[in-house]
Design a protein around this nucleic acid. Structure first.
Length: 818
RNA sequence: GCGGGUGUGGCGGAAUUGGCAGACGCGCAGGAUUUAGGAUCCUGUGUCCUUUGGACGUGAGGGUUCAAGUCCCUCCACCCGCACCA
């Protein structure tokens, strides 16, 4: 028999068979198997699949296929995150309708994914750009609007001059647009926001239930992003000014050390304070300059402090001192109250500012160094001084005391603050979900009635999509002009579209019933399937997408539509595929084309390479990967199936015991490895089993021994998680009917996990001197006696006195000489 | 600057609870079979020493322990996140 492993033939043979069998369909209501939801992050349809997809979907597929083998009804869906700028940019560049471009790419990716043999349930595919999907974005928006969670406000927002749109805080990376890397500036605009800050505490506190199940790194990033801090709000009167001004501070205990007062230069408060004073013009110039400064300049930490004295004085509520009021850009308008008390001795930024403008420095916490001299603010704990009633107290005591004092006088209270800002969702672009609001000159913001949803996008044909700072939808006059649902008068649709992160905030629920027409999802199905048991995706979404999804689910919980607080029970962040240490890109010239690799070595070899390369969360360097080696191994495994000569269904009871033990041990170890997400180790165990089986056939019990069939079948089933084509072909050659994907995981017999002899390591003074084969059941006393009479051990001891003998039966004995 | 993570052969990486370091693979070397081989199979492959055999060895240094890649302390290197958040 000179058959050879031909991946091409195998791929062509089995793909149509699977289409017929649909082994991964999950929607049968009579299906009695227990349920599991394995979710891969859905792709953006920008061209064909690439190496990154190949890795991510290979990893997710191992889990999905494993749980199917373990007898679960696994929901493993896929869809397309199909709204977004690239479609629009391609449209502008090439004159193609974004819709045409998007659907063409989806079809291409879908075909590639099928060939890549991902175990998706193809009945559940969704595209976020379908009106059937974005209908429910609009519905959610209205629910939030009705609950006061969606609102419009004017604010200085992040503006990308290149994309000509606003960006969420989360989309600004180091002062630049995450998409095009242009420097982001500020622009005052009225925009829609979702009130995620209302959920800050729950987003933070509910992370306790994710501890140990999500990567610690992601939890930490989310914690930092939310940035909860506790301190106090302190009320300062301003001399000759009608309104008092609050400041937020985490160090209210240093209130006696305040020597000045600062408000954010670009805040309305600053303008108000300066109005009518001789500082008005200076502030206006300064504020203009600040707005022009890009974030990247603002962020450079060694930038000298700047500011304008507003010719006003704030009154320190605890000692009546008059503090000069300044405006500066080092105070942020949208954090806390946009105003601070300046305590230069104990805050570095305040100290830098004080030194720049010759303001006094007064230490109120004892320390050896004097900040006024060193230029280094002291933040350490210590006894308070110059602080009236706080003198002698440490930090914790002083904070408690000052909050008590402020409370009694009604000039302050304990307060919590967050770094998290509300989620800005308006986008001035075409290819997204229209915001279902109608602006009526009489009635104001009027929601589109639910029965008129979805508000469909007008055809792109005839619209100018090029970025110009205003939404293209506003120019679709016919579309935008509507009658106000309340008064019937002439009104206009909101011309903006939603951030595409709205789509991904709940798409995992839509999969449960993707064709539902009378609601976003079926709550009954959600009770069955949710939360997602295992989510697999890139760490690039560690903050944005995961935070927003968690927020949405908490809103849904409050709406009574779901009964859980966290959408994703477990999270796996796969690494990236890199080449020679850096990200693959055409411009770098280190791009490895997936299609080339697939043609060269086949789907299974690529999938195997990805899974075997290392731990799933680590980056895979393609330079370290041998797809040819993977193909060689698959051929080696496949050849086993041709050497099995016993009939299918042969009783394995009488098979070669040694091989049977190896098989059961291997299956047991693979199981543990897969369940702890160490897929590379699972593959290694499969390789060991293949090697042992080959040896048994060639030089051991021979190909007709039932144990060889048992081992080879175990190999086929194990490989079905990673190399489905090879596995299916092996399964057929072993005389079975397809599909191996539903063959069931081999049952591990505990009896066969027991070794009949173990190697006992004998150490003398911690060094290995002898190995003994002993029965696993040997007692400590027996082992001690055996070892102490062993000639080699006695020789190693060389007559030395024995101090102690540590016996860990059956595996180890350590003799400690005196 | 603050916070977090990671350091194991030439390379990717293994190693329940502290208990044989280097599983599995890549690469490399030698051999078998071949007209040939980028096919297949076998053997070897941490470093050093003169061998049977031994010594050393998990970023560096110290500690705990009969026993440390694993636990503790100090340091170094690299990677990631945040970055005027009061």
């Amino acid at each position: 028999m000179t058959e050879t492993y031909d991946f091409d033939r195998i791929q062509q043979r089995w793909l149509p068979v699977w289409d017929e069998l649909t082994p991964f369909r999950s929607g049968d209501p009579t299906d009695a198997r227990p349920k599991k939801y394995i979710l891969d992050m859905f792709p953006y349809p920008s061209g064909d699949l690439h190496m990154g997809h190949a890795e991510a979907y290979a990893l997710g597929d191992v889990l999905a296929r494993y749980w199917v083998q373990r007898g679960f009804n696994v929901l493993h869906p896929i869809g397309w995150d199909a709204f977004g700028l690239p479609a629009e940019n391609a449209a502008i560049r090439n004159g193609i309708d974004p819709m045409t471009w998007t659907y063409a790419n989806i079809e291409q990716q879908k075909a590639s994914m099928r060939r890549y043999a991902c175990s998706f349930d193809w009945d559940r595919v969704l595209n976020t750009c379908d009106p059937e999907f974005y209908h429910w974005n609009q519905w959610f928006f209205l629910q939030m609007f009705n609950r006061g969670l969606a609102y419009r406000k004017a604010s200085n927002v992040n503006w990308c001059p290149e994309c000509q749109t606003v960006l969420a805080n989360e989309q600004v990376v180091a002062g630049a647009c995450e998409r095009c890397d242009s420097l982001v500036t500020k622009k005052k605009l009225t925009q829609w926001y979702l009130r995620i800050t209302d959920y800050a505490d729950r987003l933070l506190d509910d992370m306790a239930e994710l501890e140990g199940k999500w990567p610690e790194k992601v939890l930490l990033m989310q914690r930092n992003w939310i940035g909860r801090s506790t301190g106090a709000q302190v009320t300062f009167d301003i001399a000759d000014y009608p309104e008092p001004v609050n400041v937020y501070t985490t160090r209210p205990d240093t209130l006696y050390g305040a020597t000045f007062f600062v408000v954010a230069a670009d805040s309305p408060l600053a303008a108000d304070l300066a109005r009518g004073t001789s500082a008005e013009a200076a502030l206006s110039d300064y504020a203009d300059a600040v707005k022009k400064t890009s974030d990247i300049d603002r962020l450079s930490t060694d930038r000298p402090k700047s500011g304008v004295f507003l010719e006003r004085y704030a009154i320190n509520p605890v000692n009546g001192e008059r503090l000069p009021v300044w405006a500066s850009d080092y105070v942020l308008a949208d954090y806390g109250t946009g105003a601070i008390m300046g305590v230069p001795a104990h805050d570095q930024r305040d100290l830098d500012f004080a030194r720049a403008f010759g303001l006094p420095v007064r230490a109120v916490v004892e320390s050896e160094e004097d900040p006024a001299q060193t230029g280094v603010a002291t933040g350490d704990d210590g006894a308070h001084i110059n602080s009236g009633p706080l003198d002698g107290l440490n930090k914790v005591e002083a904070i408690a005391k000052i909050i008590e004092i402020l409370g009694e006088r009604g000039t302050g209270e304990e307060a919590v603050n967050y770094r998290l800002r509300d989620w800005l969702i308006s986008r001035q672009r075409y290819w997204g979900t229209p915001i279902p609001i109608i602006h009526c000159p009489q009635c104001g913001e009027v929601p589109v009635p639910e029965n008129e949803l979805p508000v469909r996008l007008p055809p792109a044909d005839g619209l100018d999509l090029s970025p110009k700072g205003a939404s293209p939808l506003g120019a679709a006059v016919e579309w935008a002009s509507v009658a106000c649902p309340q008064c019937g008068g002439a009104a206009r649709r909101d011309p903006d579209t939603m951030d595409t992160f709205v789509d991904s905030s709940w798409y995992f629920l839509r999969y449960l019933d993707p064709h539902k027409t009378d609601g976003p999802f079926d709550p009954a199905q959600a009770r069955e399937w949710m939360p997602v048991d295992q989510y697999v995706g890139g760490v690039t979404h560690a903050i944005l997408h995961l935070l927003y999804s968690r927020f949405f689910v908490k809103v849904l919980l409050d709406m009574g539509m779901v009964d859980f607080a966290e959408p994703f029970t477990r999270m796996l962040n796969q690494g990236m595929v890199v080449m020679d240490g850096s990200a693959m890109s055409k411009s770098r010239g280190n791009l490895v084309r997936l299609s080339d690799e697939l043609a060269e070595n086949g789907v299974d070899a690529i999938r195997l390479s990805m899974v075997f390369a290392g731990p799933p969360e680590d980056d895979v360097d393609w330079a370290d990967v041998s797809t040819a080696g993977a193909k060689k191994f698959l051929a080696r495994a496949w050849r086993l199936s041709g050497d099995v000569t016993s009939a299918p269904g042969t009783d394995q009871g009488g098979g070669d015991l040694a091989l049977r033990k190896i098989t059961h041990r291997a299956v047991n170890d693979m199981q543990i490895a897969v369940e702890s997400l160490r897929f590379n180790v699972a593959v290694a165990k499969t390789m060991e089993l293949v090697n042992a089986t080959r040896k048994a056939i060639d030089t051991g019990c021979g190909g007709d021994d039932p144990a060889v069939r048992e081992a080879t079948e175990a190999v086929a089933i194990a490989l079905s998680l990673v190399a489905p084509y090879t596995a299916e072909d092996m399964w057929a050659r072993l005389g079975h009917t397809p599909s191996v994907a539903r063959a069931g995981w081999p049952i591990v017999l505990p009896d066969l996990l027991v070794e009949d002899s173990v190697t006992c390591v004998v150490q003398v003074a911690g060094k290995v001197r002898e190995r003994l084969d002993v029965p696993p059941t040997i007692t400590e006393e027996e082992l001690r006696a055996l070892v102490l009479s062993n000639p080699a051990v006695l020789a190693a001891l060389d007559g030395a006195e024995i101090r102690t003998v540590i016996v860990r039966a059956p595996k180890l004995v350590n003799i400690v000489p005196a």
